[in-house]
Every structure is written in structure tokens, then in C-alpha cells.
Simulated assay, not measured.
Amino acid sequence: MTDLLAARHPVVMGILNVTPDSFSDGGRYDDVDAAVAHATQMISDGAHLVDIGGESTRPGSDRIDAETELARVRPVIRELAAAGVPMSIDTTRATVAAAALEAGVSVVNDVSGGMADPDMGRVVADAGCPWVLMHWRGHSRGMNELAVYADVVKEVCAELSERADAAIAAGVAPDRIVLDPGLGFAKTAEHNWRLSAHLDAVIALGYPVLFGSSRKSYLGRLLAGPDGTPRPVDDRATASVASALLAVAAGAWGVRVHDVRETVDALRVWQATEACR
């Protein structure tokens, strides 16, 4: 993963939710064999690593305990580690991150940006692994109430900068930090669009930027039918790919996606075009 942090090509992170209730694929991969098969397919389709999550962070979701989260992810991590699949762990808990790192993951993807668990910085610093710090203001149950900004771009950048400084103060090397603007987390659709349009401001903070818009509800609302019904989750791939491609063109280091093959195909077209400029 250290090589990926310095990669000049866009990094594709494939999403693997081993949960019964994630917004897009909850229940599809909560069986170990199904999860391993899907992760392997994503790597075959061109993903550079697989992001494994055992707790849903969809808006309004309730928390589970650490033991349940770990019981979901650890068997999958062990199987994939044995197969040589590069992985990140999508968790806000230091105990889960530590166990996942021991089991074979190489990256911590923390949607709370280190705010949910004060021990996370120590775990990451001790491991010397990359840490994705996402912009976050609170847990899923009440995060929509926190979507209040005078200037969402400036405030998200300022808060991400604070999280990066806190990580460094905890002993994490600056070259191990990745930032994520956190689309959909304490953000309205308008906030998501503004952050997407001004992603250069996040990139200007000086860290690699991971962008995650895949299949999110604001894309579904954009594609609503004549009766106003949002486009179903499983029918948002084209919009998700377009959003990811725009982010990479703006300078994002990587994209976190459900539809790996389609995203990789689009990025190859973009790269081939850029190579001829």
C-alpha cells in the first residue's frame, strides 16, 4: 500500500460490506464464501485493494458492538490474506482496526477521521500503516442534523486539516495520511455537489484524496423519474462511474467504488486520452 500512496495512476478501492444492512449491498456478502468470491472478482476486475466493512454507516443506522463487527470481518480478512488480496479495514474502532491489521489488512479507512475512538491514532502509528481520514461530524443515527455549513468547502477543508494535524500529533507519519471529503456524511445533496465541484480545494491541503460517491442517494435523486422516485441503488452505476471519473480528472488519488469493472474501464479510456495530450 505504501507504493499505492505514491502511485501516479488512479487507485481503485473496491467496496466489500460484510453486513446485513448496508445501503447498497447489505446481506449479499455476509457469508464468508460469498464475500471472498466477490473480493477476488473485484481484484480480477482491476481493483487495487478491497475495503472491508463490518458495520453499516448508512444514514440513520444504529451501532453494533465491536465483537459483532470483528466477528463479521475477521474470517473474511484471513481468507483473503491467505490469497494475497490487498485490503483495507473500514472501521471507526481501534480494537477492530488492530485485530484486522494483525489478520492481514494493510490500511485503516476510518470514516470518523479518528474522532470516534481516541485510541485509533496510536494503533495506526504503531502499525505504520496508511490511514484514510474522512470528514465526519457524528455517528449515522444523528448525522443528518449536523449538515449545517456556512461554506461547506471551506469548513470541510478546515476540519480535515485539523484531523490530519491530530493524526500527526498522535505519531502518524504525514506520508501515511489520506483525506476523504465524506460525501453523504452530514452532507446534503447540495453539499455533495459543491464538494465534488471544488475537490481541488481538498486536494490543495497536500494529501492524497480518496473520493467516494458510489451509488449514494444524491445520485439517485439526480436520476429520479418523472414521478420523483429516486433511481434504485442498483441502477446508479453509470452516474457513479461518471462521478468517479470527474474526481480523478480533478486530481483525486483514488476512488472507492462498488462497480469496479465499469470504473476501471472508464479510467482506462481517460488515461489513454490523457497520454496523447
Rank of each mutant, 00 (worst) to 15 (best):
A237T: 15
P226M: 12
R236L: 07
A224V: 07
A237N: 08
L223V: 04
L210A: 03
R231D: 01
S217M: 12
A237Q: 12
G212P: 03
F211W: 15
G206C: 08
A204E: 15
T229A: 13
A204K: 10
P208R: 02
G228F: 13
L223T: 05
A239W: 00
L222K: 01
F211V: 13
S196P: 05
A239E: 05
P230G: 04
G220P: 09
L223W: 04
P230N: 06
G225A: 04
D227T: 14
P208E: 04
G228H: 12
V209W: 01
L205E: 00
S214Y: 00
D234H: 13
P226R: 13
G206M: 03
V202H: 00
P226W: 10
A224H: 10
Y207D: 00
R215M: 03
Y207W: 11
S196T: 14
A239Y: 03
L219T: 02
A239L: 03
S217W: 06
P226E: 15
D235S: 13
A201P: 04
G225S: 03
A224T: 06
L210Q: 03
H198M: 04
V209H: 02
R236V: 01
F211L: 12
G225N: 07
G228A: 13
G225T: 02
G212W: 01
D234Y: 10
S214F: 02
Y207V: 02
S217G: 06
D200F: 04
V233H: 08
F211E: 06
D234V: 11
D235M: 13
R221M: 07
L199R: 00
G206N: 05
V209A: 07
D235R: 15
Y218F: 15
A197T: 09
A201R: 15
R221K: 14
P226H: 13
V209P: 02
G228P: 08
Y207N: 06
R215G: 01
S217K: 10
I203W: 02
H198F: 04
D235L: 14
A237R: 11
V209T: 11
P232I: 05
A237L: 08
L199A: 00
D234A: 15
K216C: 08
S213P: 15
T238Y: 11
V233M: 09
R221E: 11
L199M: 07
K216W: 10
P226T: 14
A197S: 13
